[in-house]
């Protein structure tokens, strides 16, 4: 969901942008040292309370209450029998013949979306670093996809890729690339390719913005020194630019993988998971099962998603940290 455009990242910010309070360091003298008093505690509680209450009731409660459903028989059609069934819901998930396709699709969807997004976003950022006339306008224009919901983007591209009256077929035929119109969204292979094209269209901007912000934090002196040493373009890119913004890159990729994994909106609008369930990813699959009213099985998938993401995040953070230590040795 679009909120998700928001699942964002700590990009490296320009150094002097704000006073920093390093974690774990003793509080700065003055205001922050003020000791804890009841009055201060009440102020904090009063200001935090509205936000905490909203989030607790409508976000955390359903999440926690939902996780126990994963171990119960919980079908909307018949709520009289909500007995505990152990791991049956999980077994049902794995036993479903479509599950294998769903998992494969999810992998393809994430990898085939994120690699081009990263590469194109990186290129755009490098090219946008130097000022040119209308750069501001250009940035504003390529920012547009972001204002649109994933669902609507799906609908937009559903129309573009329409088999009979779609403009994609028309353009490809005019260019002589294809002879006959292709039914893009009715063939599983091309349907998957089409949703990925739409996702690339949507996601490049995010990378461009994040990477551009990081690039602008690289001091010019580094480039001057590299130029003096006679380093070429490629060398400068791989020896200076990329190492310098590595942390931002890694974090952006991490958050983006999680976000794309959890991004059912576009597929939902474009193919609805079809044809014949062939473009479902885990998140659209879970929503489909929720809409069928099998809350037990949907919650089981939900827990699998959370566990999977957690494992991925830990693995990814460890892998990127490892490299950093190896380098500093």
């Amino acid at each position: 969901m679009p909120a998700s455009s928001a699942h964002t990242t700590a990009a490296k910010e320009p150094a002097a942008a704000r006073p920093t309070h390093p974690k774990g360091a003793p509080p700065a003298p003055g205001r922050r040292k003020r000791e804890f008093t009841t009055r201060r505690g009440l102020v904090i509680a009063a200001y935090m309370a509205p936000a905490a209450i909203f989030v607790a009731i409508f976000t955390y409660y359903p999440m926690v209450a939902g996780s126990q459903m994963a171990f119960r028989n919980w079908k909307l059609a018949d709520l009289t029998d909500t007995s505990w069934v152990g791991l049956k819901n999980f077994q049902d998930v794995f036993a479903d013949p479509a599950w294998g396709t769903v998992l494969t699709n999810t992998g393809v969807w994430v990898v085939a979306s994120i690699v081009p997004q990263l590469v194109i976003g990186f290129a755009l950022a490098l090219w946008l670093r130097r000022r040119f006339r209308f750069r501001g306008v250009y940035q504003a224009l390529i920012f547009f996809p972001w204002a649109i919901s994933g669902f609507l983007i799906g609908i937009l591209f559903r129309w573009l890729f329409n088999g009979e009256f779609g403009v994609v077929n028309d353009l490809l035929q005019k260019a002589g690339i294809i002879d006959e119109p292709i039914g893009w969204l009715s063939d599983p292979q091309t349907a998957m390719a089409a949703v990925i094209v739409a996702n690339i269209w949507y996601g490049v901007t995010f990378f461009a913005i994040m990477i551009l912000a990081a690039l602008q934090s690289i001091p010019d002196e580094l480039y001057e020194a590299a130029a003096l040493d006679g380093a070429g373009k490629a060398r400068t890119l791989f020896r200076i630019t990329i190492p310098y913004i590595r942390t931002t890159l890694a974090l952006t990729v991490l958050l983006r993988v999680i976000w794309i994994f959890n991004f059912p909106d576009l597929i939902f609008g474009m193919t609805g998971g079809g044809p014949n369930n062939e473009t479902h990813i885990v998140s659209t699959w879970m929503i489909k099962i929720t809409q069928q009213g099998d809350y037990g099985r949907a919650s089981a998938i939900g827990l699998l998603i959370v566990a999977g993401l957690l494992l991925f995040a830990i693995f990814f953070l460890l892998a990127t940290r490892e490299r950093k230590e190896a380098r500093s040795r």
Partner: peptide
């Protein structure tokens, strides 16, 4: 802890609790 609680809601998508939310 509060910041972490906010972060968790950003990592775990809202659609994960559609069913329980509907019941609530």
């Amino acid at each position: 802890a509060l910041l972490m609680a906010a972060l968790v809601t950003q990592m775990i998508p809202a659609f994960i609790a559609l069913g329980p939310l509907y019941l609530l």
